[in-house]
Design a protein around this nucleic acid. Sequence first.
RNA 1: GGGGCUGUAGGCUAGCUUGGUCUAGACUGUCAGGCUCGGGCCCUGGUGACCCCGGUUCAAAUCCGGGCAGCCCCA
Length: 484
Amino acid sequence: MTNPERKAWSQDYSGWFHKVIAEVPIYDTRYPVKGTGIWMPFGYRLRKEVLRIIREELERTGHEEVLFPLLIPDYLLSKESEHIRDFEDEVYWVTHGGKTPLEVKLALRPTSETAMYPMFKLWINAYSDLPLRVFQIVNVFRYETKATRPMIRVREVSTFKEAHTAHATREEAEEQERIGVEVYSKIFERLKIPFLRTVRPDWDKFPGAERSIAFDTVMPDGKVLQIGTVHFLGQGFARAFDIRYMNSDGNYEHVWQTCYGISERAIAALISIHGDDHGLVLPSEVAPVQAVVIPIVYKGSEEEVLKRCKEVSEILKTSGVRVAIDDRRDMTPGNKYYSWEMKGTPVRIEIGPRDIDNNTVVLVRRDVLKKTPVNLDCLVEEVKRLFINIDEELTKRGREWMASKVREAETVDQAKSELDNNGGVVELNWCGRTNCGEELERTIDARILGVPFDKNGAENHITGAKCAGCNESAIKRIRVARSY
RNA sequence: GGGGCUGUAGGCUAGCUUGGUCUAGACUGUCAGGCUCGGGCCCUGGUGACCCCGGUUCAAAUCCGGGCAGCCCCA
């Protein structure tokens, strides 16, 4: 069989997603607290591989891992006024220790700025303490609206990678913002997740930030999912938390800061974007099992076949491939194929009596489900070549998917009909005025994601065009979408 | 946040309108045994559930109220 279908995937994405995460299994949604879920062993391993990539990219660029407490006292959480105003409706509070009411209410962190920055104040004294770059991978809690969704809108974000940096000057912090964007781009490229980088409009910035740059992707149902954000914080938090350093003149100055985050939404995107009706399709780098060996045993040849399977498995293991043998006796090969395809295993290796005779194995790649017999002597080489082919195919598919989901429009009517018919993202001209933006969102029935990010920052003005909303002169190109 | 639908074995499904003879399935999973194994084999036997609390009633899976949880649509 070749060319696995994407019927369920495209026509009933939500049903497809629920089924896949339950069947693989990745994530069990049946825990009786709303907006929470359980990472099942296979899902946990997938998450671990994704986190490995995230850690590698951050560590490569000078970020150090730390771990802060879950609890934040109320007076710290409310220190930065914009920040608390946005978060206060979604904070979980710990109010009692046993039966004793607490004198200071404790928040379950919704994010950790207000936990970290009082400590930054203690850690940073002099110019030589900068730049400071730390990150942690923790759970955070947000009392989300009733419309929760596994991994995508949850009340306990179980996998929240947050990086926080502090710098001596605006320029250095802006350089860090750029590095943050590059780090995230690299991470998503390694995950083969296509993305758009968009500077959020002022009304949609991270509370307390000067500028927010978001990574968005398009899910199979055409809705946009934000999978990462990079924030330039300026000096707002530094003032609120009085984080200062002594400069070379002997004067104290507030630091400049950035922060950036990625959550398990990235894993939801990884699962969704590559998948098909047989289940997951995983890039080789993050597949918990990269190659599975399926013995095809007939009566009388069991020992010989199993012996060969073990040899093959050992050879691959030695060359660094995460490999498993499925030697379950009470299951037919076909059944095993389906179950490993559901798990997204990039390469399947079938070994039967015929292969023993011919000194071959049969390789099957998950993305296109194509079978190729190869000689045992080139096993490692061929398996690794398939990994590369699969990864390239996933990157290509991702790009094509994204390209097909980003359209241009002249008018709000065109924009609306594009979104009605095709979903995704529509780009159009805009005057830059907030009230026009709000009207535009209402008319198109969508959200303004913001302005395309380029390396020079947000200020990529345009001239000589009319605003699609009010017909005045347009100054920006904006992206509009329906989102999660 | 507003609305709709729903909750029955690990999963899926029937029963609910009109309370009783209710508990059930030839599906799937799972366990034991047999037969097998190059795309979801087959046979035999076993296993396992009416979301929680309260109310109405002689009698509740079924009706009513509340809670918890889920899905869908809209914001």
